[in-house]
């Protein structure tokens, strides 16, 4: 039986701590955590690390555009874009967008999914039927097209993209949490609490929520990767926020400025690698969590 999933004496705080307990025993997860740490530090200190404003159009001394410089030229570590912007600075600032998108989407997905799962699993009946049909609907909506349409028809902003993602992605979390709640509800201590006259709210908050938090975290950490990848796709297709420099925006810019024909690998490889690094770090960590939660699955 998985240690973290079987809870006999519910104590809210200790449960929360066990939920966020980092899977440091797993070598994969450790690598992931190190990448995350680097990523977060970069995002937070972007203004200190980046030598230029990522949207600033740079000029050489004689008024020519500082465009398409190769790595190392005029002190640009990764060169400049066709519009004379510093690529390295864009990578650094892109971390900030990715962090924002990833964390908010993950939070919203985990939050909505947990609430739905809790209500559905705990109350059952028509609440359950209604919420699970809603989940069916969310499963029936093609995810990326939905986000494209919402992003394109509303003001271009990262937040609209994040909200569109959250509106669909809660479905997986909701279903899994529901089945977890179903099994928790029939446990002895929950029955005991009910018999002793505890209110539903109290039972949910004190006895059930702490036990589903680890799962919420697991699904949240998976959503970080999804959100970053989706935002990149949206930006690549040109429906992203034109003022926010993200890795997806950089790739779109590179593709449309013909970085491929120019063989400007220094332009379109780094943003791709940054995405892969951060998203796979998320996968590594979630694997670590899985091993912690369900030792049977991972190996």
């Amino acid at each position: 039986m998985p240690e973290a999933a079987v809870i006999r004496k519910p104590r809210v705080l200790s449960r929360v701590f066990s939920a966020v307990r980092l899977p440091v025993g797993d070598p994969f997860a450790v690598v992931g955590l190190v990448i995350y740490a680097l990523f977060i530090v970069t995002a937070l200190s972007a203004p200190l690390i980046a030598p230029y404003d990522p949207t600033e159009i740079l000029y050489t001394e004689n008024y020519d555009l500082a465009s398409d410089l190769l790595p190392g030229e005029e002190g640009h570590v990764l060169g400049t874009t066709s519009l004379g912007r510093d690529i390295f600075s864009q990578i650094v600032w892109g971390a900030r967008s990715a962090l924002l998108v990833g964390l908010t989407a993950a939070f919203m997905v985990a939050f909505i999914g947990s609430i739905v799962g809790l209500l559905s699993g705990y109350f059952g009946g028509w609440v359950d039927a209604l919420l699970m049909r809603l989940a069916d609907v969310a499963f029936g909506i093609p995810f990326l097209p939905f986000v494209i349409v919402i992003s394109a028809f509303s003001e271009p902003s990262i937040w609209n993209t994040v909200i569109a993602m959250a509106l669909v992605l809660w479905r997986d979390t909701g279903r899994v949490i529901r089945s977890q709640v179903l099994s928790l509800r029939s446990r002895g201590y929950v029955e005991a609490a009910r018999v002793s006259g505890s209110s539903d709210l109290k039972i949910i908050l004190r006895h059930i929520t702490p036990n589903i938090l680890p799962l919420s975290f697991l699904y949240g950490s998976i959503a970080i990767g999804w959100a970053i990848l989706t935002e990149a796709s949206i930006s690549f297709l040109g429906f992203g926020d034109p003022d926010a420099i993200s890795w997806g925006f950089m790739l779109q810019d590179a593709f449309n400025s013909q970085a491929l024909a120019r063989q400007a690998y220094h332009w379109f490889i780094p943003p791709g690698l940054a995405i892969i690094l951060v998203v796979s770090a998320g996968f590594f960590i979630s694997r670590g969590y899985e091993n912690l939660l369900f030792p049977k699955l991972g190996r």
Partner: peptide, 24 residues
């Protein structure tokens, strides 16, 4: 980790890289 990294790749980026190498 390689398998996990392929899941973390933006598909369009992979397409761009393949296009740059094998076509252009």
């Amino acid at each position: 980790p390689v398998v996990l990294a392929t899941r973390a790749m933006p598909e369009f980026w992979l397409g761009m890289v393949l296009l740059a190498i094998f076509s252009f």
